[in-house]
Design a protein around this nucleic acid. Sequence first.
RNA 1: GCCAAGGUAGCCAAGUUGGUCACGGCGCGUGUCUGAAAAACAUGAGAUUCCGGUUCGAUUCCGGACCUUGGCA
Length: 335
Amino acid sequence: MLRKLLVICGPTATGKTGLGIDLAKRFNGEIISADSRQVYSGMDIGTGKDLGPKSNVKYQRSEMRIKNEKYQLGFYLIRNIPVWLYDLVLPDYRFTVADWLICAHLVIKDIWRQEKLPIIVGGTGFYIKSLIEGVGTLGIKPDWRLREKLKDQKTTDLARKLRRLDSTRWRLMNLSDRQNPRRLIRALEVAKSRQPAGGKSEYKNQKKIKKLRFDRILILGLKAPLPVLYQRIDQRVKARVSQGIEAEIKELLVKGYHWQNSSLGKTLGYQEWRLFFERRAAREEVIRRWQYDEHAYARRQLTWFRKIRGVCWFDPDKKTRKRKIENEIAAWITK
RNA sequence: GCCAAGGUAGCCAAGUUGGUCACGGCGCGUGUCUGAAAAACAUGAGAUUCCGGUUCGAUUCCGGACCUUGGCA
C-alpha cells in the first residue's frame, strides 16, 4: 500500500477541521492536527478545538507510547472520526516542532498500518514544513539555560557573537533574521553544540529525527479574500467569547498557569485577556484587540502557505466546493 | 441664534514662533522563517476640510464658507 498523505492547510477560520472530518468520513481517514496551540490541554475554546459541549467528547488515550512518556498521546472522536494531537501536554510545557513531529510520525504510521488515510489539518506552517520537507538542525535540542542567559542581550551583540562563532551561518541569514534575537539565539545554540574537536557538522546532543517517506502527498488549501476572512474571524472570536473563553482562562489561572509561566502569554485568544484580568482594559477592548491579532495572524499564515508549491486552493464559502474537492481527492487516491 | 474650542491619512494623534509638504500609535498591505512559529523579526502604502487674502513662500498668519463638539439661550 502506498504511503499517502492528505494535507489541509489555510489560515484560521476557514473551516479546515470541518472539511477534514467530512473528507475523513468519505475517504476512510483520521485527522492529525498540525497546530502549535491545540497541543495544550485545557486550552480548548481559544485554540479552536471543535469539541462541542465538553461532556460529549472524551479523550481516548492511545496504546502507543513514546519512550519517556512526555506526551499524552490520544485522540478525540469528533463526529466519529479520530482527531489526533490535541491535548498532548500541559500549558506550561515548552512544546516545539520536534515534539510535534515525533508524535505526528508515530500517529501517521499507525494510521497507515490500519490502511487508512492520514489527514493533516492545521495552520502552523512550520510544523507542516517540518513534516513534508524536513528541518535540518532538528536534532539539536534547545538549551533553555543559554536562551535565558542571552534573553536580554542586545541584538547587535548577539549578531557579533554569531559572526565570530559561525560566520557561515551568519552569511546564510537574511536581513530580517539577522535582526531577530530569537533566530540569532537559536543559531548560537546550534553553533555552540557543535562538537569542539569533531569533524564536519558533528553535533553533540543530537538525536536524529528520521524523516518519514511519503509516496504521494496532496495539499489542499482553504482561503478567502482578506475582507471576507476578517468577517469570519470577527464572528468566530465573538462566538468564542460566548462559548466561555473567560471562564476557561479563569480556570487555567486557578490551576496556577499564568501569562509568564505558560503558553497563555503567547497564544492568541489568551494573551489579550491579560489586561482584562489585571483590570487594565475593558472587555470590549480585549475582544477588538483579539480580532485584530487574529487578522494579522491570518495574514502571516497566508504568507507561509502561498510559498508552498502545488496547493489546490478552494474557497470555504462556495457551495460547489465539496464536490470539487472530493473529485480532486478521488483522482489522486486512485492515481 | 449666540459664545467657546476644534477641523492633519480608515481611526487616534504630535508638530511647525511661516521655509526641504509633517512625529508616533492603531488599522491596512508585503515579506522572513532549519527544535519558542498563534512565537520572533523585517518592510511598504496612506494625510494638512474648502475658497480667498498677506507673503518670494502657508499645513502654520488673516477673512469667509462648510462641518464637529461643548456651553448659553
